[in-house]
Design a protein around this nucleic acid. Structure first.
Lengths: 338, 338
DNA sequence: TCCAGGCTCTAAATCGCTTCCATAAATTCC
DNA sequence: GGAATTTATGGAAGCGATTTAGAGCCTGGA
């Protein structure tokens, strides 16, 4: 127990300790650990490995990061980490990153521009290898952030920002898919629930998709309710919808969260889903599968996104600065009336 | 634009660049940034601050971490990061940590012991200042992990592990609260849905609480269903419950996730909640507030937990190795029959 | 005029790791 | 048998920051 231990009790075992224990130089320890640039004799390597095991040595990733210029760390910023969609996406991305030896440091901007800026600065300061972000900032603000050459990948928005690759679901196409399904059920009066953007000039592509599907079917635009991107927001917006003179017969919710809020409002009004009001949502999180009734939803290809995002983040040059939009899939369940 | 820039185009601005630009030594830059150990003349400080602004210098946190021996980083491991309870808890903890200048690196063990071990090793290697974990390992396995003195804080389990502080909700008390409420509604046949542990010998304290409340009320133990800690798990377990000869009139679900699955199963069976079967859940996530009907739930004090956990993680000595159990609160909504 | 004592600021060591360069030992080739 | 390789190891520089020890320069008092 005594003897070659490290400097009494700090608990830190460094590569120097291993080298001393194995009777080699620190360089050799590195070679063994990394299959390093130089070869090591089998017998020596064995001694080193034994020392590592005995001392329970773990390389100091911080020091390694300093020399290598990479901490094998990716930063991620989302506007609401408790939104199941972002929780699932973050998890999928972390999973894909882990498969390549990277960890993901996730931050929550709480839909606040200032917090997002601070998060970004923090990640830059921590020298992450790339930043994956669903931004609430305007393109010009995003472009202006001092990231000192750290590559960024934008997610969850269809429009690309000059010089920054974007990978996202094709929101517009997805919305078209969902609304068309509702139209197929003979609904003529289809409302939409959409998150309100900080920037009123910006319009949610799902909103455009809804418009487009309606227009193509020769239907008039139903009511559009803008609200917070939360269950509560969906609930309140739907309450407003229900008070309308001419109540819509169907609602397209641009998020599962919003849809779940909508379901509650409709239930409370004593109306039946889908008979009185049909609902189609967007996202396809697990929550949508267990609501009552089960939500028919436009599923985002989370795993595909995760794979593409990681690929882009890890080889910044591979993707241009254009937006790569991935197709959605309609998951038919009960809330649409099928 | 040209001139004093850094080594052409790498994008990295180091303290050396700032020092050169300001015409001082690198030490002075440190002093200015940190209000450092030595004072700096006002005029010099101003020059340095200007250089920092012009060059958009951001200290390299990795290098700082190496010298300081702390990256101001906390590690966290949960068994399922997409479970809304853990998502909300992680967020609250990250929030509390951020208020003290720490970031949280979260990992998902997917309820897999081996993954949890790897996550732990990874965090140790990254020199996090502390590890906050909801473990799926046995106490002895936890104790045996080579963490080299990195403090750990256990969460989400009532029993403490020798030498490691634990902060958690008082699950047993919470379960008693929930079950008593059901008993108050004259239910005599109350089932429980509980997550199945990897270690069959371990018993969930909520299970004990349910037993205790029943016993104290002189009621016989209703059926207990063990299942995966997911919505799907709750759904399947409830299906089994519904097929029972003597169907329970109430269900206590030891998690919102499980309860949501239960609601769907009950709805599908054409039964009414709470008239045919009442449900009380555990956790109190936002999801429970928007299910149909709204779930009466035993709320975990997430923010309190977060505060305590961060305090414990940041001053390891402050808390002994005992378990600090926080009280729950019953949130009465609709699923209980009130 | 000189020197003590304050202020500022610089030089240099250090954190743990990677890797280039050099060196020593072992092997091969005439 | 000695030179030329090949193979295995060690020394030391450097990554970007913090911090200690100490070097100049001023000021003021004797």
């Amino acid at each position: 127990m005594a003897g070659i231990e490290t400097k009494a009790g700090t608990g830190k075992v460094t590569r120097t300790d291993v080298a001393r224990y194995a009777g080699v130089s620190t360089a050799v320890v590195s070679y063994v650990i990394n299959g390093g640039p130089k070869p090591v004799a089998a017998s020596t390597a064995k001694r080193v490995r034994e020392a590592i095991k005995v001392l329970q040595y773990q390389p100091n990733a911080t020091a390694r990061a300093l020399t290598m210029g990479s901490a094998r760390l990716l930063g991620m910023i989302v506007p609401d980490s408790t939104n199941p969609y972002f929780a699932e996406l973050t998890d999928a991305i972390a999973q894909a990153a882990a498969a390549r030896g990277y960890a993901v440091l996730a931050a929550n901007s709480r839909t606040d521009p200032e917090t997002e800026r601070q998060n970004t600065l923090n990640l830059v300061s921590r020298q992450v290898d790339a930043i994956i972000m669903a931004t609430v900032l305007s393109p010009s603000e995003v472009a202006a952030m001092p990231v000192h050459g750290i590559p960024r990948v934008l997610i969850d928005q269809s429009s690309s920002v000059h010089g920054i690759p974007t990978i996202s679901t094709d929101f517009e196409q997805g919305a078209v898919l969902g609304v068309q399904h509702l139209i197929g059920h003979d609904h003529r009066d289809i409302a939409i629930l959409v998150g309100k953007d900080i920037d009123p000039a910006r319009t949610d592509p799902r909103h455009n998709g809804w418009r487009k599907a309606l227009r193509e079917a020769g239907l008039r635009e139903g009511p559009a309710e803008f609200t917070d991107f939360t269950r509560q927001g969906g609930y309140e917006a739907t309450l407003r919808l229900l008070e309308l003179q001419q109540r819509p017969t169907a609602i397209f919710a641009s998020s599962d969260l919003l849809a779940v809020g909508a379901l509650r409002a409709i239930h409370e009004a004593g109306l039946s889903i889908p008979d009185d009001i049909a609902v189609v949502s967007f996202d396809g999180t697990s929550e949508s599968e267990f609501s009552w009734p089960q939500l028919t939803t436009v599923r985002q290809p989370i795993n595909q996104i995760a794979e593409r995002v990681i690929a882009a983040a890890l080889s910044p040059a591979s993707l241009g600065d254009h937006a790569l939009l991935l197709a959605t899939e309609l998951v038919v369940r009960k809330s649409c009336g099928c």
